[in-house]
Computed example of a mutant assay.
Amino acid sequence: MELQAFIAALSGFGHAPASEADIAGFERTLGHALPPDYRAFLSLCGGGYMASQPSFKWSTGEWAGRVHTVGGLREDLDDYSLLSQWRAPHWKKPEDFLWILRDHGGNPIGLALSGDEAGQVFFLDHEMEPEDEDWEGTVADALEAEYLLPLAPSFADFVALVYED
């Protein structure tokens, strides 16, 4: 799917896209720079939900799920707020993982913010949550525990894997 079609498919409750100042402030809060393609998305879109729930694929081309909730830099609804999800996630998350959207089953999908995986998009399988003693809270540990599963090398590549049935 093209980025503009992805954005057009969102029901955003009329929330405005983020300004450059908003994005820079969010990066300061995270302590990490956002990938350029994701920054561009935030500057165009305030998040929302996908009424049509388009499908997305694994990098292998197989069906993976449906896009439901898409985050934005907004404070009106916690379930759609990147900042709220960063501060109080619904699931245990690696310290360097940013929730950006949720699938139809409630599984978080997000970006790695540091290390060799920075900028890559991952599916967090909440049914595979590791015990505290089994990981140190990093993306690399979550990958090893199969708690995070790779989806795409970038946000733009992920959007390209999204399609209307």
Score class of each variant (00 low, 15 high):
Glu2Thr: 08
Leu3Tyr: 02
Ala5Pro: 11
Ala5Met: 15
Gly12Asn: 15
Ser19Tyr: 00
Asp22Pro: 05
Glu27Met: 01
Arg39Leu: 10
Ser43Glu: 13
Gly46Arg: 11
Tyr49Arg: 15
Ala51Ser: 10
Gln53Glu: 15
Pro54Tyr: 03
Ser55Gln: 12
Ser59Ala: 13
Glu62Asn: 07
Ala64Thr: 02
Arg66Met: 10
Arg66Ser: 07
His68Leu: 10
Val70Asp: 13
Gly71Arg: 06
Gly72Asn: 13
Leu73Pro: 11
Leu77Thr: 00
Leu83Tyr: 08
Arg87Met: 02
Arg87Ile: 00
Trp91Gly: 00
Lys92Leu: 14
Lys92Trp: 14
Asp96Gly: 02
Phe97Tyr: 15
Leu98Met: 05
Trp99Leu: 12
Trp99Thr: 15
Leu101Gln: 14
Arg102Phe: 09
Asp103Asn: 07
His104Thr: 00
Gly105Asn: 15
Ile109Trp: 05
Leu111Ile: 06
Leu111Tyr: 10
Leu111Arg: 02
Leu111Pro: 06
Ala112Tyr: 02
Ser114Trp: 01
Ser114Val: 01
Gly115Arg: 07
Asp116Val: 07
Val121Trp: 04
Phe123Leu: 10
His126Ala: 14
Pro130His: 09
Gly137Met: 06
Gly137Ile: 00
Gly137Ala: 06
Val139Asn: 08
Ala140Gln: 15
Ala140Leu: 14
Leu143Tyr: 07
Glu144Asn: 03
Ala152Glu: 00
Pro153Ala: 09
Val159Cys: 06
Val162Cys: 14
Asp165Asn: 03
